[in-house]
Design a protein around this nucleic acid. Structure first.
Lengths: 340, 340
DNA sequence: TTTCCATTATGAACCGATTCACCGACGAAG
DNA sequence: CTTCGTCGGTGAATCGGTTCATAATGGAAA
């Protein structure tokens, strides 16, 4: 029924022998078919089919050096924000017939390193990375070794290192200002660890909004660090918050998955949204508008983020200078935060 | 500020020269450190650091053959179902220090082929694939060439080909039977193209439930093929459905993203759920319970699916025989389908 | 008929690692 | 004093492609 497993993969030598030509000719059929006469070409093509020969990528790359694969490392592949970014990347790469290897660091610097090394060993053209902590030395070292690097969702501190990011300070500010305008005077912020730059910057934005309103952040801001940037983290954070009798009347969540967990927990605990507590999320994922209480959220141009990053990477490969792109987020107001 | 780009990546020869040893010794330091005297080892390690040498993976693999990377191809990386599966895969692979390359076929057989070829050229240990259409010949051929293959979310027709799947016939039946029990006598099925096996099988399940209830599927079932298996597809399908005056009072959606689009459209059109129309989804993604109208859905053991698939792949690499695993889905009833 | 050029094919060198047969030195045993 | 085993290290062969200098062939031009 099924074909037996071959003893050994067919090599270009086997093809050459079967087609009774030299290995050079087989290679030419593969890479420069026009330099081979039609009759020989046919013989070689037949032999290739006969042996179901697939060229060994390692050997090819070892000799030729070039490759059309790039890598991307994101913090959490289960987060719609990152998958949308990945789609943007793929859409750009497809135009140039590049392929993407996607990896997931789970916010773990060690995993990030491991994948970077894997990519480098496989000789990728370049990598797009959402750094999982503050440090980017290893990325600079990587680049020094000839691998193109583009920072993803994180602005570059260096002029000659490309980056594509969204203004997270502004995003945090938009969210907090909105809550203040709704009459809230104290805000809870379910944030991720400060090792992650985005979290720090959104925090900065929140503080800025509070100060602009004449409030003292030490008083008006309750920051809770969630154990993970997803629904379970949001649930844990919200429980911690509700444990305190004197909790704020507004919650700003570092992303929509966290907000999802918050909404779930509030509902279970009988806290009404937005009547008792207002909630604002971040990312404006697909389902944000369809929730029991439609979620106010900070929208980011996810697809464009990925698309542009891939763009910069391909440009860098072609010798173009580095560039720092910064997109602006926008607030989408829905029921979860508006006073009834 | 930043280190300049090196002319050329350092090779094992450069290291050997700098450390004044032979290349064989450097290789030993890398792979069998105990066979090298401490003093020489130190010299070599210093040289490696000095040149920031990273071994060329292509060369290594070309010579050594072995590799600890596997590939996975899913239909849509933006679908939470597949990202959960991917997490399951990663969790299993991490145990054995394998790494995952993830790719996205977008239900396009050509893209699937492209990634399979990429994986094969890079000499992966094996691949896990959610086939994007009915045919699996190319996967059998791939396996015949020595690449381990595990079918993902699709049961194998061959005894000696591993697969991990969920019983989709049963899932479709569960959903349809539930709707019939709620008193509906005609059901709309927003399904994907029949090229995708899961869609065919869920359809079979629906038909089976209808027949068991003594209904004629030709009468009681209105199947609409959505243009894409996501929220936009669900919206399009629902609009098509509403265009007919005499539409069924129940909609079964082939996945939760489609259901999300359906709920959105029904709301926009002023159709009440479940009062006017009942809706059932498939996958039970995280947000299903939190929607405006909590969504009844067929739950699948996503994480286990991926975990087990990776398990079988690693087992196959170790010489274990093929195995077909079939999980059973379960229906989670919520407000979107229960008569008020 | 000879010369010359274009076309097509050849085969060896090379990419950068791993692996293994072999060698030199040194200490222990006979 | 020889013999032998061990340890540490060497360097050439090898993996499977690409590339390029070179050769063979044949037809057109002189």
């Amino acid at each position: 029924m099924s074909t037996p497993v071959q003893r050994r993969r067919a090599s270009i030598n086997d093809v050459a022998r079967l087609a009774e030509v030299s290995v050079g000719t087989v290679s030419n059929v593969l890479n420069r078919p026009d330099r081979v006469s039609p009759t020989t070409r046919e013989r070689v093509v037949a032999a290739i089919a006969e042996l179901s020969f697939v060229p060994n990528g390692s050997a090819r790359q070892l000799r030729a050096g070039t490759i059309t694969t790039v890598g991307a490392i994101v913090l959490d592949i289960a987060n719609p924000f990152f998958t949308d970014v990945a789609r943007g990347i793929e859409d750009r790469l497809t135009q140039d017939d590049y392929t993407l290897m996607l990896a997931n660091s789970e916010e773990d610097p060690e995993r990030e390193q491991r994948y970077l090394r894997l990519f480098e060993e496989h000789g990728v053209q370049g990598v797009m990375v959402v750094p999982s902590d503050e440090r980017i030395d290893h990325l600079l070292a990587l680049r020094a070794r000839g691998v193109n690097v583009v920072l993803l969702d994180r602005s570059s501190p260096l002029d000659d290192l490309s980056s594509v990011a969204v203004d997270d300070v502004s995003g945090g500010e938009l969210a907090a200002r909105h809550l203040l305008e709704q009459g809230h005077t104290r805000i809870a912020f379910l944030n991720g660890p400060h090792a992650i730059r985005q979290c720090v910057e959104r925090h900065t934005g929140v503080v800025r909004a509070l100060e602009a309103a004449g409030l003292d952040p030490a008083e008006a801001l309750v920051e809770i660090t969630v154990p993970s940037l997803n629904a379970d983290g949001g649930e844990a954070g919200t429980r911690e918050l509700l444990a305190s009798a004197d909790h704020p009347s507004a919650i700003f969540c570092v992303n929509d998955l966290t907000a999802l967990g918050a909404l779930r927990t509030l509902r279970h605990e009988g806290v009404r949204v937005p009547d008792d507590v207002a909630v604002v999320g971040y990312d404006d994922v697909t389902f944000a508008a369809e929730l029991g209480t439609p979620l106010t959220s900070v929208r980011q141009p996810t697809h464009a983020l990925g698309f542009r990053a891939a763009d910069l990477l391909l440009a860098a490969a072609a010798g173009a200078p580095a560039e720092q792109v910064l997109f602006q987020p926008e607030l989408v107001v829905r029921a979860s935060s508006t006073t009834p």
